[in-house]
């Protein structure tokens, strides 16, 4: 497939995409090529269906997830996968504060949940800014910088959720 992921699903090549439409296209395509449709077919078609279906799953997962979608979009536009940007000092300080906070509340479920809401808010806020940098300004270097911050916030978020699961199962 020489198409890029946006072309596969017939959605515009930008950060803000219609997730419903993406899902619909995805399902239409899988209904056509999924290995379940080729159970009694020849080996050649089975192989091809496995290959295509895998590719379409990968493309879908990439576009569905905002972080992966942004990374992919930046890669296409910058024509490289290199990531030289560093996090600004102000963010590093913020980062340390969050880390310390997580440490101090690691056993308190209600505090963890509160913190998770806060971080989730940060995540949403940053995604909104990223959208405008990608779709309006088309400044891919800045987009890359922002993406690194968002990625940190996302990882922090899943660590908090993991911690909540852990406290709960005790």
């Amino acid at each position: 497939m020489t198409q890029n992921y946006f072309e596969i699903f017939n959605v515009p090549m930008q950060f803000k995409i219609d997730l419903n439409r993406l899902q619909q296209s995805y399902r239409i395509i899988q209904a056509e090529i999924h290995p379940d449709k080729f159970v009694s077919a020849s080996q050649i078609e089975k192989n091809e269906s496995l290959k295509k279906s895998t590719e379409v799953n990968d493309a879908y997962q990439t576009l569905k997830n905002p972080i992966k979608r942004a990374r992919y979009l930046i890669k296409i536009n910058l024509n490289s996968e290199e990531n030289n940007s560093t996090l600004p000092p102000s963010f590093l300080i913020q980062q340390m504060e969050w880390e310390e906070h997580l440490e101090s509340i690691s056993e308190q479920k209600s505090e963890l949940e509160k913190f998770q809401l806060l971080i989730d808010g940060e995540y949403q806020k940053n995604l909104n800014s990223l959208e405008s940098v990608c779709d309006k300004d088309k400044n891919w270097d800045i987009a890359m910088e922002m993406l690194n911050e968002i990625q940190f916030i996302d990882k922090l978020n899943s660590r908090i959720i993991q911690q909540i699961n852990l406290v709960e199962s005790k």
Binding site: M1, I8, F9, N10, S25, I28, I29, A31, E32, I33, I44, E45, N47, E48, S49, K51, K52, V56
Partner: peptide, 18 residues
């Protein structure tokens, strides 16, 4: 010899479906 033919046909069926 028919591998690439099969691939092209599958692409066509995706395109048609969409």
């Amino acid at each position: 010899n028919s591998q690439s033919f099969a691939a092209k046909r599958m692409d066509r069926s995706i395109h048609k479906a969409l």
